[in-house]
Design a binder for these strands. Structure first.
Lengths: 216, 216, 216, 216
DNA sequence: AATGAATGAGGGTTCATTCAT
DNA sequence: AATGAATGAACCCTCATTCAT
């Protein structure tokens, strides 16, 4: 976690720093994100980074947490209703929010995608698999919550949870492929993706509908 | 592509080199794979690498092609029959072969997984998205080939192709999560995963079955 | 020397500061003692150090003086009697007190040992040699004071003074080697060495006795 | 130990490197010896150092061994005769050779003195005490070898061994103090100390004579 | 064809000191 | 009197690539 030094920083300065750090770690994986480069962009002394954070890993963990929290804000309301009503509607809503988040916050989106793919780093462990395992476990629980009420009793919750996990992790990619967008480009430009609300909704709907019979 | 010097190498030497290179790039992403480390393990001169290949990128591309070809050998027979008979059976067979390949060749499997996740490297481009795009396009074609014959006419081939793509890219992960295996560990040890043929078959079957209703 | 700000400090605070500084400089030589680390342990602002002292060297000199004074308290009574009675008894008593001081104040002892070995630092000069020169000169004088009365007239006061100096500088080391103690460990733990008064006395006695014939 | 790279270096280049390294580590203790500074003086790339040695510690150990071997060449003949003839003559000869070595090789001398004072470095351990312990143990054995033949039976070999150890470690210091020399200065200038052979001999003789009665 | 020494920019990190508050 | 953020040079070390042999 950040040192107090960082928390006591003038809000604007802290924001600048955070932004530059997110930028660097959004466009590079952990090992290749360069503190040297980051401070050059920021125009501050390299030593300052170590006034704010213990080390590179500490900074990285802060950014992950920040991005995760930010994303949670988008999805919290939906997640809370995990057991209510219709599962498909719920999941569609969840995906919708998740996709919107990435489109509106390309930097945070890219960062989280990077995190979800860290496999080879001894220092931070295999986050990719850990992430998937946890997400799949959560979705399995939700599926089993709905199964008695509205889902087919023959449904294989474990396997289906995995399919839904994959969908979740890959949705933004799919959208970008279909719409010929490059999220990294938007992260690079620090701009949100301009999207057509109806298009996004339709995309998610179609995506989930394609799986619907499997959930029937 | 390799220089002629590499192709003229004594087969055994070429094999040793290739193995060591695969090892290094299987356990590290492109940027973090170290030629320095590779030649140390191999016990050859660092300069030799540049007699064989133009540069690091050239070597990487060679390894990708090699791994892809090796995997193709496993799946070619299945892929050729893309239009025949039952789609589901076909796809199940395809996944089965793909999973077996990863389990029997952890090093190649890890390498290809790494490749499928290179997003942030200006030097080699966003391979992750390129890969997905191509795979999805191929599967869409196959789906559309079967649709008039055996698949539901209302099926959204584009979206479904994406789901199947995700399944393909994530199947080995799912297997490793369920069986609590670490593929990187096997790559590191240079040993194949010992698996129970029936278990693998069942796993793939369940995985596809969970999606079956969506395929009509 | 300390600035007035330091002298005006609340006694307890001044004591805390002094203790932490001694700790740092006891366990590290001048260059490697870290003010950054010291203030972290102390929990005060880094800037405060520079309110109290001109710079690192200034602080170091203060600590040396303090440790030296503290040691002097232990030995003053003995030193004062430099010309009286039996030289050997006197010197034995001096060594005894000196050794006790190190055992009872491992931090101060370590610091002074460090000081007595600073040779390579342009900033603070070759303290090692300066120290030895002064000590040897003092002992030479004392020897010459006793020589007409109780020491052999053929005795080479200059050379003998050097032997006694070496003994003085190395006595604690010898004790630690024989008793298998690590003084730095006790400094680290901020605890005195628990010693057997009789053992210490015997050790010093044997040590001096071994030289006695030379003083005959 | 050095990598093969270093051993294969052109002799002149290897000599230049070794000289510069000795220079740096003779005038600075381990932690403060700077590889950055060393290569600047040498006019080679920093990376080269790591072609030759694993790391700083590896280089340091090489230099210690080299200096120790060089010193051994000076003293080997004497040491071999450890049990023969008169102990005092033998020890005088040993000290004589040791002192000559330091005077003729100020850089190596300074380095070994530095080594004999490393107390505070976790990375390399407390070499100071280790050195003393070993030297004292050796001298004790030699004393006990002579005791039945030519030394007083009442002599305390353990304590006396320590006095002789101290003498050995401090002899050069004593000489420098008496003759008002600064060995570091000669190391810095890369020149041998110009000494008067007779003076050195007399100095050692007087020094040992002062202890002679204690050896009875 | 093979070598392996040389390069130099880049990596993360630590440090004593300053100065506006 | 006290703070603590800012500095920037220095630290050790790694890297892909080159090139004379």
């Amino acid at each position: 976690m950040p040192k107090s030094t960082f928390l006591n920083l003038r809000p604007e300065k802290r924001a600048d720093f955070t932004d530059a750090a997110l930028f660097e770690f959004a466009l590079n994986d952990y090992q290749n994100a360069s503190i040297t480069n980051m401070v050059k962009v920021l125009g501050i002394a390299k030593g300052s980074v170590y006034q704010y954070f213990e080390n590179k890993k500490d900074l990285y963990e802060f950014l992950i947490e920040l991005a995760a929290e930010e994303k949670l804000k988008y999805t919290k309301k939906v997640i809370k209703k995990a057991g209510d009503g219709d599962f498909i509607k719920w999941y569609r809503k969840l995906l919708h929010q998740s996709l919107l988040f990435d489109l509106e916050n390309p930097m945070l989106g890219c960062l989280l995608i990077n995190v979800s793919q860290e496999r080879n780093n001894a220092e931070i462990g295999n986050l990719a698999l850990t992430n998937k395992r946890e997400t799949a476990a959560f979705l399995k629980k939700v599926l089993e919550l709905h199964q008695p009420k509205s889902l087919s009793p023959s449904l294989d919750s474990s396997k289906l949870a995995f399919h839904l996990t994959q969908l979740g992790f890959g949705l933004t990619d799919a959208f970008c492929i279909e719409k010929e967008l490059d999220l990294r480009h938007f992260a690079l430009e620090r701009t949100a993706v301009e999207y057509d609300e109806a298009e996004v909704k339709a995309f998610v709907k179609d995506m989930v509908n394609a799986l619907k019979p499997a959930l029937g």
